[in-house]
Write a protein that binds this DNA or RNA. Structure first.
Length: 568
RNA sequence: CGGGACGUAGCGCAGCUUGGUAGCGCACCUGAUUUGGGAUCAGGUGGUCGCAGGUUCAAAUCCUGUCGUCCCGACCA
């Protein structure tokens, strides 16, 4: 490719709306242009990178028995009504009507479509396992698209769906994808970490997220300093650092605590540490009020709570709800004497002795409250938000925190969709069984953005070699030097003959402009043909990532570059 | 969806308070000089000031509505 013909309009200035590095550099290097909020055009350079990422994905999917197909982007409402997600998915589902007024949506994911197909055409255990995937545009009408390609409303995703006969077979599919994902992100040259994750609205029984480590990541990861434990902070289990409490149970008392509405107020007023208090929070879970108890210094993790309650909708109760059902106001709610409301407690609560909680009476709290003796708990569960510094739930080591970009996620779905969409097969004994499914996604654009977040400097992008849009740029310093132009051209042609992906910067620009653009776009190697070295019959070969410069004879430059690329 | 900000040339911005000729830098085009890290000089192209109403002799500027964009939060297969 000749730079004079390459459509890569670079910008000197950063567009005001680009907030993070990858977005800024993709805009500046002419890789992407915004067409609407969260909707981008991939320009030629970006598309080359994405095709490389997609090819790596294809190779690894195929290696694990995946078969590529292509499903429609437009999906009829009936499929979603059948799975129950038409009503559950909410506003993120991009809905539309056809000319007859029939409901459709733009696919945010494809469980409904693929499961329907498989249900119709696969009837025997002999046809399983089946692993089908596509690389396709997905639509999610995000409330808040942001950070360029990181969170778009239209984006390209690889999604594979596995169909197996039982849980053991699903485990094999899951492990196969885990391996494939590890290979994919490794081959893309990324530093990443698989972490345990929440299953979210997709439902199912196990999940890992593949997090590309980067400061700008939206997700927090907690990982153990000692063992292999790593989890998304939103689901990380909480190890307990609670000393077993030997305190003698004392008599319960009601105390006057005017204006103590928060735990801090209360602890300050009573001169006790927040750990002695039992925080009581009222939630509305699918219209049922529940009381959640947790140690005063802890934070409730609403994802854990939602999972523990197995509810679809979870909200904090309003002051009105609390007054109506509990007969007391926010800040003074407590479990003692409470009737008709389900009480959930975090794992730490049953072990507390002589705690402090609301008295269900304005301006009063109870001290020396003891679980079991003073109130009963309907359900205990791990409900608190784990934090860095806490003990690892598996080995007791210390949890550390890191930030990551969720580039891929794998799920065990179980039979959630095979049940609703009727995906069944006959086993050896002729009995009908539900297929057991898994689904596995990778965001292609997000992976590209993540690669930039992890590999850049003040001058621009430093592509991992495996996904670099081109490998070499040949730069004649002066476009008026016949000799330089000719030497550059000959090196360029030699590289092209060797099938090395090369750009020749033949533009009528000053050298500074070409160098700046080369660094910005991030070609791994730059061959500079200039008067300084040409006098000795040599050219410079510069490595973008390290800055090292090799002086090489003109005739050997192409071979040298080819060799050097193999070592990167 | 709650809070905040913004919309003037392809990009970055000024002008708006106090209504009266639409401006600067970069980019782009022409010419000259220049050529190893985003050149200089001269000349030039390009804007219904997001859109729609209203007030006014007169609106980028004031008022109303509307659309769009970004940030924080909530949310997120």
């Amino acid at each position: 490719m000749r730079a004079s013909q390459l459509f890569a309009p670079t910008l000197r200035e950063v567009p005001a709306e680009a907030e993070i590095v990858s977005h800024q550099l993709m805009m500046r290097s002419g890789m992407i242009r915004k067409t609407a909020s969260g909707v981008y055009t991939y320009m030629p350079i970006a598309w080359r990178v994405m095709k490389k990422i997609m090819n790596i994905i294809r190779e690894e999917m195929d290696a694990e028995g995946g078969q590529e197909l292509m499903m429609p982007g437009v999906q009829p409402a009936e499929l979603w009504l059948k799975s129950g997600r038409w009503d559950v998915y909410g506003e993120e589902l991009w809905r539309l009507k056809d000319r007859h007024g029939r409901d459709f949506c733009l696919g945010p994911t494809h469980e409904e479509v693929i499961t329907t197909i498989v249900a119709g055409d696969v009837k025997s255990y002999r046809d399983l396992p089946l692993r089908l995937y596509q690389i396709q545009t997905k639509y999610r009408d995000e409330r808040r698209p942001r950070f360029g390609l990181m969170r778009g409303r239209e984006f390209i995703m690889k999604d594979l769906y596995s169909f197996d006969r039982d849980d053991a077979a699903l485990e094999e599919s899951y492990q196969a994808m885990y391996r494939a994902y590890t290979n994919i992100f490794t081959r893309c040259g990324l530093k990443f970490r698989p972490v345990q994750a929440d299953n979210g609205a997709i439902g199912g029984t196990a999940s890992h997220e593949f997090m590309v480590l980067a400061q700008s990541g939206e997700a927090e990861i907690l990982y153990c300093s000692e063992c292999r434990y790593a989890a998304s902070a939103e689901i990380a289990q909480s190890g307990s650092d609670q000393e077993s409490n030997k305190e003698e149970a004392k008599n319960r008392e009601e105390v006057y605590t005017p204006d103590c509405k928060t735990i801090d107020d209360l602890a300050g007023f009573l001169k006790i540490s927040p750990e002695k208090t039992i925080k009581a929070l009222c939630y509305k879970a699918d219209d049922e009020l529940v009381l959640v108890l947790i140690r005063g210094d802890r934070t409730v993790n609403e994802i854990k709570l939602k999972n523990a309650l197995a509810c679809l909708d979870l909200q904090m109760a309003t002051d009105e709800d609390i007054t109506r059902v509990m007969g007391s106001s926010m800040g003074f709610v407590g479990p003692v004497g409470l009737k008709g409301v389900k009480i959930l407690a975090d794992l730490e609560v049953p072990n507390m002795t002589n705690g402090v909680c609301g008295a269900n009476k304005k301006d009063y709290h109870l001290i020396n409250v003891n679980p079991d003796r003073d109130f009963s708990i309907d359900q205990t569960a791990d409900l608190r938000l784990a934090k860095a510094g806490e003990p690892c739930p598996e080995c007791g080591g210390k949890l550390l925190s890191a930030r990551g970009i969720e580039a891929g996620q794998i799920f065990k779905l179980g039979n959630k969709y095979s049940k609703s969409m009727g995906a069944k097969y006959l086993d050896e004994t002729g009995r009908e069984q539900l297929m057991v499914m898994g689904c596995y996604g990778i965001g292609v654009g997000r992976t590209m953005a993540a690669a930039i977040e992890q590999n850049f400097d003040d001058d621009g992008i430093i592509w991992p070699i495996s996904i670099a849009p081109y490998h070499v740029v040949v730069v004649p310093v002066s476009d008026r030097s016949e000799e330089q132009v000719q030497v550059a051209e000959s090196i360029y042609l030699k590289l092209i003959n060797k099938k090395v992906e090369t750009v020749c910067d033949d533009r009528k620009e000053r050298p500074g402009v070409k160098f700046k653009d080369a660094d910005l776009i991030g070609y791994p190697l730059r061959i500079t043909v200039g008067s300084k070295t040409l006098a000795e019959g040599k050219v410079e070969v510069k490595v973008r990532s390290t800055g090292e410069v090799h002086l090489v004879e003109v005739g050997k430059a192409a071979d040298f570059a080819e060799q050097l690329l193999k070592e990167l």
